[in-house]
Design a protein around this nucleic acid. Structure first.
Lengths: 231, 231
DNA sequence: TAGATTGTTAATCGATTAACAATC
DNA sequence: TAGATTGTTAATCGATTAACAATC
């Protein structure tokens, strides 16, 4: 009689049957970052109390989040640091690298191409695309810039699944349409506009203005409060 | 006897007394983007049904979100497009520009300096800082790069309130400490690391890996599901 | 007027926090 | 052993959705 506590709902290594909630997924990179720090500090085991403490989270939240992973802890000891790192990477699919196309060789596109850390996050940008003849044919951080017209065909041939949109807002929908036509399965959109995309293609928007909205409103509110208090 | 429906809890124009929830603030830029589209399309009035529809949201959510604003709609007609735009901008503090310092003149820092749209979001980057002597003294997109050691002093003298961290993770905490020393009130952190900051300074983390975590896990889960179904 | 839409209250949903038996 | 920590269930909290009277 196995305890129901250890029953896995899916074959080992497979994705969880239950969809992992977005808030949980968004906390995973934070855990990973803290765990890597602990590893360099020579720590082999870590409790949820300690890990959550470093990130300013409730320990119970970490315990609950880790139920989404293929790993269990030991009472009194906690979790093995490297084991937990591997379990999170596997959960996110960061243990093997996926090819991606980037569109828009402007300053944001160049910044993304220059960021080496994506490899650690399972992402390998294999080509960039633009419509500007002055940019086409050049190489940015070792990545070729190709004409946008080649995107769909190349995506099919190379079986690329991920597209990154780093164009101005006005061009984003057209680029998204080309990505869908090319059979891409996931789009990471940095353009500040909402896209119409068929449901079989995943979209995540990376909209800086959303974070800035929180920061600037909170700053303004705090200022108003101070003014009220101190005259 | 005024209807309690129109009672304002704070003097007109002041920030709402009740803290606006983060999810509400994060939706505001989306409303703004859609409203600007409607305005260019010549629309003068818009209903929550129509506005929310464009963004894939529930109309009731938009109605509720707008209760945080200094504006009321008209039954049967909706909200005035320009009035709603102004009300949202005022709520976020985007109707007047604030000066900001940026630290880290790498590719991300350059990309942020190159983005002209920040002015529309109430943000004006007035100086960049770095420790690299090869970068100090140069000008990026018209913004001077100064030695990091000058940050705290200049921040105090110029009464700059917002700092943007675009350095590698290893340097971020040190930069944050300098920003706190310089009296900055809000930090927008692009480095993939969590910062220790006193509670009187606001911090928002713009961590790309959080969005990427959602995208790549969902993609992986979908792949696994397809494999299961189609053999 | 009739009917679409508002602002608001109640119901639902989901995420976080608290509590605690099991356990190493 | 004693006690810290796990995994899990229940309680709380907050956000979204549904419902509806008021209204232009």
């Amino acid at each position: 009689m196995t305890s129901p506590r250890h029953v896995r709902r899916t074959p080992a290594g497979a994705a969880a049957a239950q969809a992992i909630p977005v808030p949980v997924l968004r906390r995973m990179p934070g855990y990973l970052q803290a765990l890597r720090q602990f590893r360099t500090e020579g720590l082999e085991w870590v409790s949820c109390t300690r890990l959550a403490g470093r990130l300013g989270l409730d320990p119970a939240l970490a315990r609950k989040d880790f139920t989404a992973l293929d790993i269990t802890g030991k009472p009194k000891t906690g979790f093995p640091v490297t084991g937990l790192i591997r379990a999170i990477e596997s959960c996110l699919g960061w243990d093997n690298v996926r090819d991606a196309f980037l569109v828009g060789a402007g300053s944001l596109g160049r910044a993304l191409l220059g960021y080496r850390g994506f490899r650690e996050h399972g992402l390998n940008i294999v080509a960039a695309f633009d419509t500007d003849p002055g940019k086409i044919g050049s190489s940015l951080h070792g990545t070729q810039v190709l004409p946008l017209s080649k995107l769909a065909g190349l995506a099919r041939r190379m079986r690329v699944a991920i597209g990154i949109i780093a164009t101005p807002a006005a061009a984003a929908q057209e680029v998204a349409d080309l990505m869908v036509a090319g059979g891409l399965r996931a789009i990471w959109n940095f353009a500040p506009t909402s896209l119409s995309i068929p449901p079989e293609v995943l979209v995540e928007n990376e909209d800086l203005s959303r974070t800035l909205a929180v920061l600037s409103q909170r700053l303004q509110a705090r200022r108003a409060l101070e003014l009220e208090e101190n005259g």
